[in-house]
Amino acid sequence: GEDLPLPPGWSVDWTMRGRKYYIDHNTNTTHWSHPLESGPSSG
């Protein structure tokens, strides 16, 4: 998808195989999909 801006506290990194993933430092979790690309989340 597009390179959307990341929310505060997020960063992007790549695996050893070159796969892009996103790090949420607020909750110390990692995600394969961009936080703003996922569907609407409630709460």
Score class of each variant (00 low, 15 high):
E37A: 14
N28R: 08
L6T: 01
D3P: 08
E37D: 10
R17Q: 15
H31G: 01
P35M: 01
W10N: 00
T29C: 05
D3G: 09
D24T: 00
D3T: 10
T29E: 06
T27R: 05
M16D: 15
L6N: 00
I23W: 06
T15V: 03
H25M: 07
N28Q: 09
G9A: 01
L6F: 02
S38A: 13
H25A: 07
S11G: 06
S41H: 11
Y21L: 06
S41P: 14
P7Q: 01
Y21P: 00
H25F: 07
S11D: 07
G43C: 14
S42W: 12
V12N: 01
P35Q: 03
P35L: 01
T30A: 10
E2R: 10
N26K: 07
W14N: 05
S41F: 08
N28G: 14
P35V: 02
R19W: 09
T15A: 03
P7E: 02
T27L: 04
P40F: 13
H34T: 03
P5K: 08
P5A: 11
W10D: 01
K20A: 05
G9S: 03
T27I: 00
S38R: 12
K20N: 01
M16Y: 14
S11M: 06
T15L: 03
N26P: 02
G39R: 14
H31Y: 09
T15S: 06
S33W: 11
H25V: 04
D13L: 11
W10V: 02
N28H: 10
L6R: 07
H31S: 09
P7G: 01
P8N: 07
L4D: 09
E37L: 14
G9V: 00
S42F: 13
T15E: 04
G39W: 12
M16V: 14
V12P: 05
W10P: 01
D13M: 14
P5T: 09
N26S: 09
W10A: 00
R19A: 07
W10M: 00
P5Y: 08
G1N: 13
N28W: 06
Y21V: 07
K20M: 08
V12W: 09
G18M: 04
S41L: 13
R17A: 15
W10S: 01
G43S: 11
R19V: 13
T29D: 03
V12R: 05
Y22K: 01
W32V: 03
S33E: 10
Y22D: 00
N26Y: 06
Y22W: 08
T15W: 05
T15K: 02
H25S: 08
M16T: 14
E2L: 10
G39Y: 10
P5L: 10
D13A: 15
L6Q: 03
P5H: 09
K20H: 03
D13K: 14
T30K: 14
R19F: 12
D13Y: 15
I23N: 02
E2I: 11
G39N: 12
N28V: 03
L36Y: 09
P8V: 07
P35S: 02
L36K: 06
T29R: 06
S42N: 13
D24I: 01
P5Q: 09
S38N: 12
W14P: 04
D13G: 15
I23V: 08
S11K: 05
T27E: 02
P40A: 12
D13F: 13
N26F: 06
L36G: 08
W10F: 01
D13T: 08
K20Q: 06
G1Y: 11
K20T: 04
H34L: 09
H31M: 04
G43T: 12
L4H: 08
S42P: 11
R17I: 08
N28K: 08
E37V: 14
R19T: 11
P5S: 09
D3E: 13
G1H: 11
P7V: 00
Y21N: 00
H34S: 05
H31D: 00
S38W: 11
T15M: 02
I23Y: 08
M16L: 13
R17E: 15
N26G: 05
G1P: 11
D24Q: 03
G1R: 11
T30V: 15
T30G: 04
P5F: 07
L6M: 05
H34K: 03
P5E: 13
E2D: 11
G1T: 12
T27M: 05
T30H: 11
W32F: 07
S33H: 15
P35Y: 02
N26M: 07
E2V: 11
T29I: 06
L36N: 08
H25L: 06
G18A: 03
P7K: 00
G39E: 10
Y22A: 00
I23S: 03
S42L: 12
G18Y: 05
Y22I: 02
Y22F: 08
P8K: 08
H34M: 05
L36R: 07
H34N: 05
P8S: 08
S38T: 11
I23D: 00
T30L: 14
G9P: 01
Y22R: 00
G18P: 00
D13W: 14
D13V: 09
S41T: 13
V12L: 07
G1M: 11
S41Q: 13
Y22L: 00
R17G: 15
M16H: 14
T27S: 07
G9Y: 03
G9L: 01
R17S: 15
S11N: 05
R17M: 14
P8T: 07
T30M: 13
R19G: 05
P40T: 12
R17H: 15
P5V: 08
T27Q: 05
K20L: 08
S41K: 10
W32L: 05
Y22G: 01
K20R: 09
E2H: 11
T15Y: 04
E2T: 12
G39F: 13
H25D: 04
P8D: 09
P8E: 09
E2Q: 10
H34R: 06
L36E: 06
V12H: 05
W32M: 05
K20I: 09
R19D: 10
E37K: 13
N28S: 07
G39Q: 13
L6I: 06
T15I: 04
P5G: 09
V12I: 12
Y22V: 00
W14Q: 08
G9H: 04
S11V: 07
P35W: 03
W10Q: 01
H25G: 07
T27F: 04
P8R: 06
P40R: 09
G18S: 02
S41V: 12
P35R: 02
L36T: 06
L4S: 09
H25Y: 06
E37N: 10
G1V: 12
S33I: 14
R17Y: 15
S38Y: 11
H31F: 06
R17T: 15
W14A: 06
P7M: 00
W14R: 09
P40H: 11
R19Q: 13
D24V: 02
P40D: 12
T29Y: 02
S33V: 14
D3V: 10
M16A: 15
H31E: 00
H34I: 06
P7W: 02
E2N: 11
S33Q: 13
P7H: 01
T30F: 15
N28F: 05
S33N: 14
P7R: 00
Y21D: 01
Y21F: 12
Y21S: 01
W10L: 01
H25Q: 06
W32G: 02
W14D: 04
G9F: 05
P7D: 01
Y22T: 00
H25W: 11
M16W: 14
R17D: 15
G39A: 14
T27G: 02
G9T: 00
G39K: 13
H31V: 04
P5R: 08
L4V: 10
P7S: 01
W32Q: 03
G1D: 13
L4K: 10
N26W: 06
M16K: 15
G9D: 02
G43W: 13
H34E: 02
V12G: 04
H34A: 05
D3H: 10
S42H: 13
T27N: 08
T15Q: 02
W32R: 04
N28E: 07
P7I: 00
Y21T: 01
V12E: 07
Y21A: 01
D13E: 15
S41M: 11
H31T: 07
T29H: 04
D3Q: 10
S33A: 10
S42Y: 14
W10R: 01
P7T: 01
R17V: 08
Y22Q: 00
P5C: 00
N26C: 05
Y21W: 04
Y21E: 00
P40L: 12
L6H: 01
H31R: 07
W32D: 04
N26D: 04
S38Q: 13
G18F: 05
H31A: 04
S11L: 04
E2P: 11
H34P: 05
D13Q: 15
D13N: 15
D13P: 01
E2S: 11
T15F: 04
I23M: 05
D24P: 01
H34Y: 06
V12D: 04
E37Y: 12
P5N: 09
W14S: 06
K20V: 09
E2F: 10
Y22S: 00
P40M: 13
Y22E: 00
E2W: 09
E37Q: 13
P40Y: 12
S33T: 14
D3N: 10
